[in-house]
Simulated assay, not measured.
Amino acid sequence: MAMPAENPKFLPFTEERRRHQRVKVNLLGRYMLADRNDYPCQVVDMSPGGMAVLAPVSGNPGERVIAYIDHLGRLEGTIARVFHNGFAMTIAATARKRDKLAAQLTWLANRHILNLPEDRRHGRFTPRNPAARLILPNGTNVACRVIDLSESGAAIGISDDQRPPVGAVVTIGKAPGRVVRHIEGGFAIEFTRLQHPDFVEDNVTGG
């Protein structure tokens, strides 16, 4: 669900801006506050150390946030400040995770600058570890095998009795997508969003 496009009113993360370059993004996701309720959100401004979120419920400064953001997966942090249509939060992450976020944000920024089409087809490859977890439309989490993989989709091996119908929305690893066709012994999925080429294998199979 898209959130209001109104520009958020908030002060910059002074210290965080000194350490990390912030970039404009447009990423949808969901988040959970201390009350454990789940809400939709839209990230509009982000760095490896923090992000600004348009959200229906802002929470309170210092409150813990767990967010699941397209392309980026699970992010944790605390609310730094609130504004009338959302909040700004810090991101708690290891140095390795921050480096990965920086690379993903650079790719996202360059993709928008270059206006790369998200439905462009990419060369497929066989993952090092084909074992993965698949979340079916009914919420069931099952084991599956990734036959091959690209930035835009994957071929999944699974038993016929567990194979979802064409058009079903599923999640393979951390990558959501839609079943586009059935193949022998499985099905093909097209990702909802184009995956970063350096991290697509980690997002789908966990490496």
Rank of each mutant, 00 (worst) to 15 (best):
S47I: 00
M3V: 03
A55Q: 09
G73N: 02
L194F: 06
E63G: 13
R193W: 00
L33F: 03
D35P: 01
A155P: 15
D35V: 01
V57F: 07
P130G: 07
F87C: 04
R178S: 15
G177D: 13
H71T: 05
L28K: 00
A88E: 07
V142Y: 12
I183D: 09
V146G: 03
V179R: 11
G77R: 09
V65M: 06
G173S: 05
A143G: 14
I113L: 15
V179G: 10
I66C: 03
N37F: 05
R18Y: 03
N141F: 11
D148M: 07
Q104R: 03
I113Q: 14
M51V: 05
R22I: 01
S150W: 03
V146Q: 11
D198R: 09
I158Q: 15
V170W: 11
I91T: 04
N141T: 15
D38F: 02
G139A: 02
K100A: 10
R19N: 12
I79G: 04
L54E: 01
L11K: 06
G177M: 14
A34G: 08
N138W: 04
I147W: 08
H196S: 01
R36S: 06
K100I: 10
N138E: 13
N203W: 13
I69T: 02
F87N: 06
N138T: 10
R22H: 10
T90L: 03
A188D: 14
Q195V: 02
V23Q: 08
H84R: 15
G62P: 13
M89S: 04
T140N: 09
I79R: 07
V142G: 07
A132H: 12
L75V: 01
A154T: 08
D38V: 05
N203Q: 15
R98H: 01
D38Q: 07
I158K: 11
A109P: 04
Y68C: 01
T90W: 10
M32R: 12
A95H: 14
G185K: 10
E190H: 15
S150T: 07
A88M: 06
D202N: 05
N60W: 15
P12D: 00
G86F: 06
G153I: 14
V170G: 07
M3Q: 04
V169N: 15
G62R: 12
P61N: 05
A95M: 15
L72F: 07
P137F: 01
I69S: 00
S150G: 02
A93F: 08
R178P: 11
L28T: 00
A131L: 09
E118R: 09
F125V: 01
G153F: 13
L11P: 04
L114K: 12
A2W: 12
A34M: 07
L72E: 04
V65K: 02
R193F: 00
H122S: 05
P164F: 09
